[in-house]
């Protein structure tokens, strides 16, 4: 009994309090998974909220750990939750000041793969967004240099999309091994 009470009495994490106060309309969901706070944001407000998370003096999520994406096209439960948005762009942030992490997810629909680039907030986002573009085909608006980073420049398709065949579309055979700039 006592234990249950203690759990209930835990105060809401500061970040959730502040987000509810200042950006309630941007929040699609909030959750805590294995000790990490996960918030899902509306795409339209995502940039503004990320900027808020970074610049707010109390939160100060100054370190962008990772940018990646998930293709949920074969995860019916996930799809239903967020209006059948196929992709989920994921930002992992860390605050040195509060020594805590937050995972920010933004649903992206297949018919509009554009999302604002956060390179203006964290310069380290540059290559991370290039990788996400390369692997998933997400277009980061305002990115200074949105080229492929892992696959060869003339590669077609985005191999981490779930409908991309594991063994590829014959790239291993058709790849031009002589014309590459080495």
């Amino acid at each position: 009994m006592n234990e249950e009470k203690e759990v209930e009495e835990q105060p809401k994490p500061l970040i959730l309090q502040k987000l509810e106060e200042h950006h309630a309309d941007a929040l699609l969901s909030q959750d805590e998974i294995r000790g990490t706070i996960v918030v899902v944001l509306r795409k339209e407000q995502a940039y503004a909220v990320l900027e808020y998370l970074k610049t707010d003096p109390e939160l100060a999520y100054t370190f962008l750990v990772d940018v990646t994406a998930v293709d949920n096209s074969q995860m019916e439960s996930e799809l239903m939750q967020f209006d059948y948005a196929r992709f989920m762009v994921v930002y992992q942030l860390y605050s040195y000041q509060g020594q805590c992490r937050v995972r920010v997810k933004v649903p992206v629909h297949e018919n509009d793969l554009n999302i604002p680039s956060v390179t203006g907030l964290w310069r380290g986002a540059n290559w991370l967004e290039r990788e996400t573009y390369d692997m998933f085909g997400i277009n980061f608006d305002g990115h200074p240099d949105l080229r492929r980073i892992l696959m060869p420049d003339d590669f077609e398709g985005h191999p981490l999309q779930k409908d991309y065949p594991l063994r590829g579309r014959g790239e291993r055979e058709s790849f031009n091994f002589d014309k590459q700039n080495v």
């Binding site: 696959m151 191999p159 594991l166 790239e171 291993r172």
Partner: peptide, 8 residues
């Protein structure tokens, strides 16, 4: 790694 990008 019998995948799209790896030399077999």
């Amino acid at each position: 790694f019998d995948t799209y990008t790896l030399i077999q």
